[in-house]
Nucleic acid binder design. Structure first.
Length: 679
DNA sequence: AACAATGGCGCG
DNA sequence: ACCGCGCCATTGTT
């Protein structure tokens, strides 16, 4: 086993294998204010813990002190989690001196102050750094209270900073219960509580987190809790700044902080959904699904299907098409030789005349569309503005892409006529247009830049179609004679092979996706020709493979050790984002080589989109909103009169920022002004 | 009842 | 041994 032994988190059985090198022990306490210990003991007068800033004058004084300091910790307590339907109640501000101000925003409001306006202005000041944990939350409430776009600047999010430093890190943990997999991989916790413990040795109680923040008067205990939270932010900021610096990740953290306001805007604005059309399409699809279900079950019954008796469920003699076991048992009993009921296998059966398999596929698609998408969206629609507010997470993925949830905006159907019809439900409101921009073929451009492949770079510089070029090189035909089908085939070749796909997979995919029968020999030949045409891509792969044997120092920090380093295999994006590869299973299996090929590319795409989002956000007029982002695509909602201008703006920024990052590879984009997401 | 694993499928 | 996600229902386990 040539793998490199990475560290494990402290206490596992394998810990002795780990070399511990403590570079520099730094007492976190030195950065904490003197009375931190007393604060935690709860035995000192409240005025030593926090200062109330509930009068307009006291509030003003607090803001003045912050201006003088040039930095503050910022935290809000709110009546709920949704910035559209809940309200901010308490604002906590901390200073480098350790002083904490706690302000009851409602009380201040009654006395004629406008603290949320003040906070809005604070968020925009480039000369005052705002430090918070998951600032998306707090800033969403502040932004939601304003009637203009806040051009927030000089932000430092301790959660994002920490996530940047730990990206990709997996620790092995024993499962707490007896499960099949004894070892479980776990990503480190990134809550404020976890960070305070890890880096400062402070344990924060979360007892009051969900207490009644809408009460007539807030209790001293609630305020103490709130004050303790905000007090750890600046000490954490110090440590994370240094950690970012040691790992040369300041730039990536800055990229995340700059993208943050646009994420807030996307979540707050949400997507416009045509509710009526959505409901009727849902009903139509539900009916369709119901008809198909009965047909499937009736035919199965007629053909002699007998349900197994299952533990824990009510017995039904009917086949459940959502049960892959039921389906597999039935189809095998019918004499079909299959081992999976996935789409590829069922398509094959349907093609060979099994209409039941075709119906099942249709049923799965229709019921998924009706239940998982259309119905879910209607249930998720905000009663405040009747729009769909998915959440975005900047760093929940290993390579640095966004993830999205509740609902996942990144998996809205688009393929095929049915998918398109679903996207058309996202309609711009009257007088508005959607402006959509896609980075064109960005993965291959990134690969051209990563590998510095001469042929690829020249092709892009000449504005050539790389899929056609690949098709031409494989077939030996001149580019002008390449058919659409050949181009599609070459597209599969390009995407599969740059990430390490083997000829066997190529053969399989050609069949599945295009119905092209490719012999293994032909697939091998295409594989050979591809790397012959783009030799630097092969060299890039080779270079990535060697990374496994070239671990580098990566710095971490905790309260006990201070800053310390570990030998870690890391991969990097063009912007310098790092991903740490921890071993996954017993035996120290590292990343698969294909992951090492893919990660810098995928991560660079994320870097680029985030850079573009920051840039676009800072250039948008107030009436135009950023409403969506899907890996290589951005969506704006704009008044009709501004739509064309916004299209040019997007195109210009995407080309400029992209071409700068990928230089000498040019970046291009496709922009459209639309009435709906589906065109 | 709650949790874990799996298969399946939507997107890039 | 092609990468990255989130979400659902089923099925088995505690």
């Amino acid at each position: 086993m040539s793998g490199v032994i990475l560290w494990l988190p402290g206490e596992t059985a394998l810990a002795p294998l780990v070399e511990k090198s403590i570079l520099k022990k730094r007492s976190s306490q030195a950065i904490l204010s003197q009375d931190q210990g007393e604060v935690l003991s709860n035995s000192v007068p409240l005025s030593h813990v926090y200062i109330e800033a509930d009068t307009p004058q006291a509030w003003k004084d607090a803001l003045q002190e912050i201006r003088a300091a040039g930095i503050c910790g910022l935290d809000l307590e709110t009546t709920g989690l949704d910035p559209l339907s809940s309200r901010a109640r308490l604002c906590q501000l901390s200073l480098p001196s350790g002083r904490v101000y706690v302000a009851d925003l409602w009380e201040l409001g009654r006395e004629g102050a406008s603290p949320l306006q003040d906070l809005g202005q604070l968020s925009e000041r480039s000369d005052i750094k705002k430090v918070g944990h998951n600032l998306k939350f707090d800033l969403s409430f502040i932004q939601a209270s304003q009637n203009r776009r806040l051009k927030m600047s000089n932000l430092f999010d301790t959660m994002l900073a920490s996530q940047v430093c730990w990206a990709g890190y997996d620790s092995l943990q024993r499962a707490d219960k007896a499960t099949k997999n004894f070892w479980k991989t776990k990503t480190p916790e990134q809550s404020l509580k976890a960070l305070a413990e890890r880096h400062l040795g402070i344990s924060l109680s979360k007892e009051f987190q969900a207490s009644n923040w809408g009460a007539d008067t807030l209790s001293p205990e609630q305020k103490v809790y709130a004050a303790k939270d905000v007090k750890v932010l600046l000490p954490l900021h110090e440590i994370l700044m240094e950690l970012l610096q040691k790992n040369k990740l300041e730039h990536i953290a800055e990229l995340e902080f700059t993208a943050l306001p646009s994420v807030i805007e996307m979540e707050l604005t949400g997507l416009p959904l045509d509710t009526q059309a959505c409901r009727s399409l849902m009903e139509q699809k539900k009916t369709q699904a119901q008809v198909l279900l009965q047909k499937l079950q009736a035919e199965a019954q007629k053909a002699g299907f007998e349900a197994r008796r299952k533990k824990g469920t009510k017995y039904s003699p009917l086949l459940n098409p959502a049960s892959s076991q039921d389906v597999l048992v039935f189809l095998q009993a019918q004499g079909y030789d299959i081992s999976s009921t996935g789409e590829a296998a069922l398509k094959e059966l349907a093609f060979n005349g099994c209409s039941w398999a075709g119906d099942l596929l249709q049923y799965r698609k229709t019921s998924k569309q009706a239940n998982d998408f259309l119905e879910k969206w209607l249930l998720k629609l905000s009663p405040i503005d009747n729009r769909l507010h998915g959440q975005y997470f900047q760093l929940s993925t290993r390579a640095g892409r966004f993830s999205s949830r509740e609902p996942n905006i990144q998996q809205v159907p688009k393929r095929g006529e049915e998918g398109l019809a679903i996207r058309r439900l996202f309609r711009a409101p009257p007088g508005k247009k959607l402006v959509k921009a896609d980075l064109s073929g960005i993965e291959l451009r990134i690969m051209a830049r990563l590998s510095q492949d001469k042929t690829m770079i020249e092709a892009f510089q000449a504005g050539q179609d790389l899929h056609k070029l690949t098709a031409s090189k494989i077939s030996g035909l001149p580019i002008e004679q390449i058919t659409k089908a050949q181009r599609q085939g070459a597209k599969a070749v390009n995407f599969l092979l740059i990430y390490g796909g083997q000829p066997e997979l190529l053969q399989k995919r050609a069949k599945e996706t295009y119905g092209v029968d490719m012999s293994l020999e032909e697939a091998k030949e295409a594989h050979r020709k591809f790397f012959q045409t783009y030799p630097e891509v092969a060299a890039f792969h080779e270079k990535q493979r060697t990374l496994k044997r070239l671990p580098k120092n990566h710095y971490l920090h905790n309260y006990e050790k201070g800053f310390y380093s570990r030998q870690a295999v890391t991969t990097q994006t063009i912007s310098g984002r790092k991903r740490i590869w921890g071993q996954r299973e017993y035996g120290y299996t590292l990343a698969s080589i294909n992951q090492l090929y893919n990660s810098p590319s995928q991560g660079t795409g994320a870097d680029l989109l985030k850079a573009i989002m920051g840039e676009v956000y800072s250039s948008l007029p107030d009436e135009v909103k950023m409403i969506g982002s899907v890996h290589d695509e951005l969506i704006l909602e704009a008044p009709e009169a501004l739509a064309q201008d916004m299209a040019s703006l997007l195109l210009g920024i995407m080309r400029r920022v992209g071409s700068e990052l990928l230089s000498p590879v040019p970046v291009d984009a496709e922009v459209e002004v639309l009435d709906s997401w589906g065109g």
